[in-house]
Amino acid sequence: MTSPPVRPPRRRNVIPGFGLTFGISALWLSIIVLIPLATIFLRSAHMGLEQFIAVGLSPRALEAYRLSFGTAAAAGVVNAIFGVVVAWVLVRYDFIGKRLVGAIVDLPFALPTAVAGIALTAIYAPNGWIGQLFDPLGIRIAFTPIGITIALIFIGLPFVVRSVEPVLADLGRDVEEAAATLGASRWQTFSRVILPAIGPALLTGFALTFARGVGEYGSVIFIAGNIQGSTEIAPLLIVTQLEQYNYDGATAIAVVMLLVSFGVLLGINLSQVASRRRMGA
C-alpha cells in the first residue's frame, strides 16, 4: 500500500501571505489604534493611583457609569430581540419594498450622530410627534434615561441585524426540515436549532451595540438632560474634565470606560474563537 496522501498534512498551511497580511495588519493597527490609544494610558498614569481613583471612580463617575452601561445594555437587549426579527424577515420573507427596507437598516451608520440626536430629540420632546402622545400620560421620554436608551437603540441597530443576517442566510434549511420531520414544532425548531446557530452572531451584535452605546456622545448629548446622578452620561464627564483643562482626569475616565468595553468584547470574541475550534472548523 503505497498510495500517496490525498491531502497535505493538516499542520502545514499551503496558503501564502501570512507574513505580508499579518504585517500590514499589525503595522496599521499599531499606527492608527494602539499607539494613539496608548497615550490615554500614559496620561492617566501621570496622576498616580490615588488621584486616578479619586477622579475615575468618584461617586459621581460611578453614577454616570451606571447610567451609561445600563442604558447601553438595555439598548443592546432591545436590539438583540428586534434585530433578530428584522434579520429574519429580511432573509426569509418576500414582501414589497424589501430591498429598500434592507438598505435603510444601515442608515444609523451614515447619519451624523449629532443629526440623529437632534432629530430624535425633536420627535420625543414633550411637544414632538411622539413625545406629545406620552406627555399627557405623565411619561417623559426626552431628557430621561428612556430617551438615552432610544438614541442608543438607533445607533446600535445595524450591528445586530448585520451580524445575524448572513448567518441566518447561510443556515441550511435541511436542519430545520430534519427537526420538523422529527416532530418538532416551529417554535421548538427556532429555539433549539436556529437560535443556537445564530447565538454567537447575536452575541457579537449585542456586544458591539453595547460597546458603541457606552461611549456615544453626539446623539445622546441632545436627548440626555445632563442632570447629575440621573441623566449625566459618562462621556459628558470626560468633557467636563477637559473644560477644566484637566486632561489627566479626562483620560482616567476614558481608561475606566475603555477597560470595561474591551473586557466585554474580548470575552465574547474569545468564546467565539473557542466555540469555532470546538466545532472543528
Binding site: 489604534v33 459618562a234 476614558a254 468595553s261
Partner: peptide, 11 residues
C-alpha cells in the same frame, strides 16, 4: 480591531 467601536468619539 473592534476597539475603535467602543472608544467614545470624544476620546
Amino acid at each position: 480591531i473592534d476597539l475603535p467601536f467602543s472608544v467614545s468619539p470624544v476620546v
